Amino acid sequence: YFQGQLNAMAHQIQEMFPQVPYHLVLQDLQLTRSVEITTDNILEGRI
C-alpha cells in the first residue's frame, strides 16, 4: 500500500467517525490495511 491509498482510506473513515483523531485512524490503518477492520476497531473502542 502506498501512503496516498492509506490517506484516502483514513479520510473515508473520518467521514464516518469525525470524532476520532486522523492520526489515530491512519496509525491503525497502517497495521490493518483495511477500512473494515479499522472501522470495527473504532466501534469496539480499541481506538
Rank of each mutant, 00 (worst) to 15 (best):
I13M: 04
L43N: 07
L43F: 05
Q5T: 11
V20I: 14
D28F: 06
L29I: 07
F2C: 14
H23E: 15
Y22G: 12
I42H: 00
A8E: 13
P21V: 06
G4H: 14
H11C: 13
Q12C: 15
P18G: 04
G45C: 08
E36N: 08
Q12V: 11
S34A: 04
P18F: 02
H23A: 09
E15T: 11
P18T: 03
L6E: 04
I37Q: 12
T39N: 04
I42D: 01
R33Q: 15
Y22I: 15
Q30D: 06
F17T: 01
L31C: 14
Y22C: 15
I13R: 00
I13T: 01
E36V: 09
V35T: 06
M16T: 06
G45Q: 05
S34W: 05
R46A: 04
Q27D: 08
P18C: 06
M9R: 05
D28R: 03
Q5K: 08
Q14N: 12
Q3T: 08
T32W: 04
A10G: 04
I42T: 01
L26I: 10
D28Q: 02
Q19M: 11
G45T: 02
R46M: 06
Q12I: 12
E36L: 10
S34G: 01
L43T: 07
R46T: 05
P21I: 07
N7C: 15
F17I: 02
A10I: 08
N41Q: 01
T39C: 10
F2Q: 12
L31A: 10
Y1M: 13
V25A: 05
Q27V: 08
R46Y: 06
V20Y: 11
P21F: 06
D28T: 02
Q3F: 03
L26S: 02
S34Y: 03
S34E: 03
Q12Y: 13
T32E: 02
M9V: 07
T38F: 02
T38A: 01
T39I: 15
T32I: 00
T39D: 01
S34F: 02
A10D: 00
S34D: 07
P21K: 05
H11Q: 13
L24H: 07
H23K: 06
P18E: 03
G4C: 15
D40I: 14
A8S: 09
Q14G: 08
Q14V: 14
L43H: 05
G4N: 10
Q3Y: 04
P21S: 08
D40F: 12
I13N: 00
G45M: 05
Y1C: 15
H11P: 01
H23I: 09
L24Q: 08
V20A: 05
A8M: 12
Q14D: 02
M16A: 09
E15K: 14
Q19H: 14
E44M: 14
Q19Y: 15
E36R: 12
Q14M: 12
L6N: 02
N7Y: 13
H11D: 11
Q30C: 15
R33G: 15
Q19V: 05
F2R: 04
V25E: 02
L43W: 05
N41S: 04
N7H: 15
Y1P: 14
Q12G: 06
I47G: 03
L31K: 13
L6A: 04
P21Y: 06
T39S: 08
M16G: 05
A10H: 02
I13C: 02
L6I: 11
V20R: 00
D40R: 15
Y1K: 13
Q14W: 14
P18K: 05
V20L: 10
Q14E: 05
L6H: 04
G45D: 05
Q12R: 12
Q5A: 09
H11S: 10
A10F: 05
R46P: 01
F2E: 15
L29V: 05
G4S: 11
L31Q: 10
Q27G: 07
L6K: 02
L26P: 00
V35Q: 06
V25N: 00
A8V: 09
T38Y: 00
L29D: 01
G4E: 15
L24I: 11
A8D: 11
T32F: 02
D28E: 03
L43P: 00
F17V: 01
L29R: 00
V20T: 05
Q3K: 09
Q12P: 01
I47N: 02
L43K: 11
I13H: 00
T32L: 03
I47T: 04
E15P: 02
Q5P: 07
H11A: 13
N7V: 14
L24E: 13
I37R: 11
R33I: 08
I42Y: 03
I13Q: 00
Q14R: 11
I47Q: 02
G45P: 01
L26C: 12
L29A: 00
L31E: 11
E36W: 07
Q30I: 15
E44F: 10
Y22Q: 12
G45W: 05
P18V: 03
F17K: 02
Q30R: 10
V20S: 03
D40K: 15
L43Y: 06
Q27C: 13
Q27R: 08
D40L: 14
N7P: 09
I13G: 00
I42W: 04
G45K: 06
L6V: 07
T32N: 03
R33N: 14
Q27L: 12
D40N: 15
V25C: 08
Q27M: 11
G4V: 11
L24C: 14
D28P: 09
M9Y: 10
N7F: 13
E15C: 15
Q3G: 07
Q5S: 10
A8F: 10
V25H: 01
M16F: 07
T38D: 01
A10T: 04
E36T: 09
M9G: 03
L24Y: 06
Q12H: 10
D28L: 05
Q5Y: 13
P21M: 06
I13F: 02
E15W: 07
D28A: 04
F2P: 15
E15N: 09
L29N: 00
I42K: 01
Q3E: 15
G4Y: 09
V20M: 08
E44P: 01
H11N: 09
M16Q: 10
Q27H: 10
P18M: 02
Y1A: 14
I13A: 01
Q14K: 12
R46K: 10
E15Y: 09
D28H: 02
P18S: 04
D40Y: 10
Q30K: 10
L24T: 09
D28I: 06
A10L: 09
M9N: 04
L24F: 06
Q30W: 14
F2T: 15
H11T: 10
R33K: 13
Q30E: 13
D40E: 13
Q3P: 14
D28C: 10
L31V: 12
Q27F: 09
L31M: 11
H23V: 07
E44V: 08
N7K: 13
E44Y: 11
L29E: 01
P21G: 04
A10Q: 04
A10V: 10
